[in-house]
Structures are given as C-alpha cells and as structure tokens.
Design a binder for these strands. Structure first.
Lengths: 319, 319
DNA sequence: TTAATGTATGAAACCCGTTTCATATCAAGG
DNA sequence: CCTTGATATGAAACGGGTTTCATACATTAA
C-alpha cells in the first residue's frame, strides 16, 4: 500500500501538504490539492488508520462490556449503542464477558492501553475499586444506580420499580409474592432484594428465600420455575419476573400444565419485549434502546452525569 | 503515562531490551529482566497498543458485519464468534448495518485501513464485486453459499434445506405451501426462491407470489402474516417460516383467532430457538453458535475454505 | 588453536501518520 | 513605505512501540 510519503512524491508536494489535503485543512492551493487527489486515485491510497490512532491518541472506538448478546435486554441496549455509535462516527468493540471478572478486567485494560476511547459496562461483575482504578485512563459509563463510583451512568431505579410493582400486586390481593432474577449478586439484584425486604417488612409478611428464583434468563428457564413452584407447599400467588423471556416461558408452561394465569399465578414481566405483547403479558416497560443511546452519549461527552430513566407498567392479562 | 523509553531509562537498559522483556523474548539476563519489571511496576506502565498495531500491522481486531443483534439468529452467531474471539485473543468490532450498503462498505473500508485484521459478513447487502475489490486487503468471510466470491464461508445450503422441507410438507399432504422470509433480496432468499420454484415445478403446482411473505423477522411479524392469510381466498395450508420468532408469533396469534395448528395451518420454523421448544414448534435446527465459531476461525486462518453445515428437522407439534 | 554457535545488548531504522514551527509571498491598512 | 494578517508550503519533531543489524563475549565442537 502506498503511504503518505509516496503520495507526496507523486504529487510533487510535501507530506505536510498531503496531510492537509486529506484532512481538509485550509491554506492549500487548488492546484496542489488536485495533484494530491490524483495521486490518491492513481495509487488507490488509504490511510493506515493505526498511524492516525497513534498520532492522535484516539481510536474512535468505544468498548462495550456485556455478558452475552443473545438476550433481548442486552441486544436492545446494544441496538441503541450501535445507533448512536453510527451517528457519531464511532465503532463499538464488543466484549462478551459471560459475567467473568477477568474478561471485564481485560476490557478495562483496553482502556488503559488506549485501544478504546471509553468503556461502557452494561452489566458489571468487578468490584467498584477495580473500576475506580481505571477511571484515570478514560471515561467509564455504567448501567446501574451507583453513586459510589465517580462515573456517568444511565440506570433504572430498580429499588423503586420493584417496590412499586410489589405494592401493585399487594393492592390486587397478593400476599405471597416471589420473584425471578438473572443472577443473585449484581447491583440491580441487590437493589431489588432491598426493595423486596422493605416491602415485606412494611406489610409484616414473612421472608422466604424459596420464593426467589435466580438464574432466570431465557424462555426455557420459565419451565424450571414452574416445575419448582409446583413442588412448593406454599407456592407464591404472584411473581415478578425480570425478563419477559422468562415470563413468556412461565406462561407457556402454565398453559400446558393447566395452571391458570392470573387465577393461580399472577405474572409481571419486565422490558416489554415483543413477546410480552404477543402473549398479553403484563410487564414493566424499560426503554432499553434509549438507555443504550444515552449510555453511548455519556461515553463520548466526558462530563459526568447520572440519568435515571423512567419505566412504565403496562397492564395486560397476566395480573 | 510512561513510555518504553522511560522504562529504559529507569531500568538502565536500552529500549530494545525493554521490548524484549515485555514480549518475552529470550537472550535477556535475569538481572535486567528484573530491573525492567520493577520499572514497569513503579511507573504503572502499560503499552500504548496503537503503537504496537502500527508497528506490527495487525490489530487483533476482527470486524463483524450484521444488520442488528436483537434477533436470535444473529445473536447466536455473535455468541459463537465472541467465544472463539476470546479463546484466540481477538476482539470483535461490532458493525451494525441495518442492511444499509454504505455501512457495509464502511466495514470493508476498515479492512483497507488496517483497523481490523479480517472481516466477517454475517449477512451481505453489497454486490459481490464490492466485496471482491476488498479481498486484497485482508480475509473476508461470508455466511452464505457463494462460490462466486473467492472467500471463505460457512453456510447452510438453503436450497436443499428448503427443498427438503417442502417435500416433507408435500408428503404430509400439503399442496399449497407458502413461506416467510426476512428480506427478498438476500443471497439466502434467492436460494430459497429457487428451491420453491423447482419444487412447484416438480409437482406441477401453481406459483403464487401471495404465498411469500417477506419482512418477517420478529414475533410481532407473525401477527401480520396471520392477518394477511385470513384475508386470502386460497390461503396456504402450510408455511415455512425462516425464524422461530415469527413462527412463535404465528402460533400465538392463531391460538387467539382459533385457527387450529396444524389442522388449519401447518408450520415449520427455523433455527430451533428456545421458544420453539417451549411452544412445541416443528423446526429446522441450525447450529448457529457453531457456525459463528467456524466463521471466526476461518477469519483468522487465512487459507480458503467453504464449509456447509448440516441442519436437522426437529419434529414437534406444528405439522 | 580456531571456527562456529549461543548468549546478551544497544543503536538506529521502521511503521505512517499529525502537528508544530519556520519561512515566504501577497494584499490590505495606516 | 512599512506593518500586519491572511495565504501557502515544507522540514522536522512527535506519537510509542518492534525489528533489523552490528557488536561482543562466552562456549563448544573440530
């Protein structure tokens, strides 16, 4: 491949002038500009973008950390991220962690190594301190309600959302409510557990860890939950299910087993995924695409901000 | 940030020696090796990876072109890609095209600019010639049955698969069969249309463009299909649906409308997505994660290969 | 004893752009 | 006529690594 030096020789100008032409700087005569463009065409020249990156200290690359993409929650966040990346002339580096710390650290490392200009962590596994250590190397944006870390974030207030949803079910007469989450120890899960405990305390209801189902992510996990519930002495009469995928699985499975919804079991899903509409599942809509877009913008605008997004209960047929 | 020069000064050695230590080359005395490591620790040094990229002419970055990730088909491909990327110490650059040519070209451009070492195109929109033009700049891997382009590929033989599926339905007594696809003009869709026409010819059945539904991607598109079918004078008795998402939408919608499946309408889905199992949908399993893995490996091993993967009909309750 | 080989180290070239700085011309303003 | 500012251009430094080449000493084989 030709280099900028070759172009300079071909066009009979200095490399500086070539660079100026290629970057649309002013103060270049029309004559030389033309000569450079002709050389570009003749040699099928293209920049070695790595030289640009090195020189500028920027890569127009933003890292995105998420456990996996084959779930609507992350796929929709990613969609929003990708949309803004495109509009702002950035590319995304996709870092799939499977919730493994070392992979998240690898992503942080890319920031330190200047391979990416900023890092967006859609779901965190590392300790807060590890994140903080890397803050000097570039913007890190989080998708959680975390005031402890000095970083921008876009998040759902899962404490409030959960509490409100529990209240809603309580008003509908439910006294024994359970919930399904993806993993026990995420930041969001902890907020939800706090809300759950506070709710139980408020109404003097007993806490039963058997009503909390974790590892619930995909449609097929709904079946596990239903199987489990059928074996319980005192099964919950209502379930908060933090993904409509799982909610859909539960509803489908209950149909097979002739468990009436909402009669025997009420369900509130999350995210308002398309399947929730199709299956008439009551759900809490989270504007995931918007959140993705906002996360991206926070990553490139380096002033700190924390944005709480609002969610909406969509009442359908499962409560 | 400290540079390799600073380290050299601190450790009292040359930059060459520092580089050797950092890259684990032999022929460095234990004494100097130690001195360098101490300097690294003391200065919290890390490489500027862009300098490495420029120097080596490689970035350990592989571009992935796909229209969007919020669909199991692409999300699962991506999962396989990400798995192998991790194992082989590469990162993926995620390029969402929404099937827009200019974005695909941008991805090809990244290859020319050496920002990525190879490009994997999961779903192509550009003309073959555009791809071919970029072949000199690095490996391009395709996810389609294309012998015309001199590139590696991993693909499903959609002609055969479609033909076999149509035969299967024909043996079950269906004479009027339709199908749902995502977009009319992809490579896969053309193969399928050929199979469809050949099948009709073989059994002297009439071709009716009204039995072909495109823009079918998500669950909610299933509803559109059902609405359309209900208004047809001669509706198909069976449908090949190239995504279980849509198949699930159709099944759900038919339940609401009291259309019996498979009685009034038989359905064969594609991909064997989890929802197909939950909803007992007959489907053709495509090993998407494996395909993703293979695509990745083809991208980094630069010898050409074309791998046809085999699929499997999973008979369940919708035929 | 000598030639060949292995070990150890550093100077300098190289990868390929961007940017600063110096220099020069020309037109407008005072 | 002189100063100032806009226009135009190029040499060289810079970003920060990797790699080639040259050199030197210590072994080892012949």
């Amino acid at each position: 491949m030709a280099t900028i030096k070759d172009l300079a020789k071909m066009a009979g100008v200095s490399v500086t002038t070539v660079s100026r032409v290629l970057n649309n700087h002013s103060y270049v005569s029309e004559e030389k500009r033309k000569a450079v463009f002709e050389a570009v065409k003749a040699s099928n020249y293209d920049k070695n973008i790595n030289a640009v990156h090195l020189s500028k200290g920027k890569t127009q690359l933003i890292g995105v950390v998420l456990p996996f993409a084959d779930h609507p929650y992350f796929a929709l966040l990613l969609k929003g991220l990708a949309k803004q990346a495109l509009e702002n002339n950035y590319k995304l580096v996709f870092i799939q962690t499977d919730y493994r710390k070392e992979r998240e650290i690898e992503a942080l490392h890319m920031l330190k190594q200047k391979q990416i200009d900023a890092l967006i962590i859609c779901s965190r596994t590392c300790e807060a301190e590890v994140i903080e250590e890397h803050l000097p190397f570039g913007p890190i944006v989080l998708c959680e309600n975390n005031k402890e870390i000095e970083a921008s974030s876009t998040y759902v207030n899962h404490y409030n959302v959960f509490f409100d949803a529990l209240e809603y079910l309580y008003q509908k007469g439910h006294k024994r409510i359970g919930y399904c989450i993806a993993r026990k120890f995420g930041a969001n899960s902890r907020d939800r557990e706090r809300a759950y405990r506070d709710f139980l305390k408020k109404y003097h209801l007993p806490y039963d860890s058997g009503c909390i189902f974790d590892q619930c992510l995909h449609v097929e996990d709904g079946e596990k939950v239903v199987n489990h519930i059928m074996e319980m002495d005192e099964p919950p009469s209502a379930l908060l299910v933090t993904s409509d995928q799982v909610a859909a699985g539960i509803v489908t499975c209950c149909q097979k087993r002739h468990i009436s919804i909402p009669g025997d079991l009420a369900i509130i899903g999350f995210n308002n995924e398309p399947i929730a509409k199709m299956m008439n599942i009551t759900t809490i809509e989270i504007p995931l695409v918007d959140m993705g877009e906002n996360l991206f913008l926070q990553a490139v605008n380096d002033d700190l901000s924390n944005k709480e997004v609002s969610v909406q209960l969509i009442e359908r047929g499962t409560v």
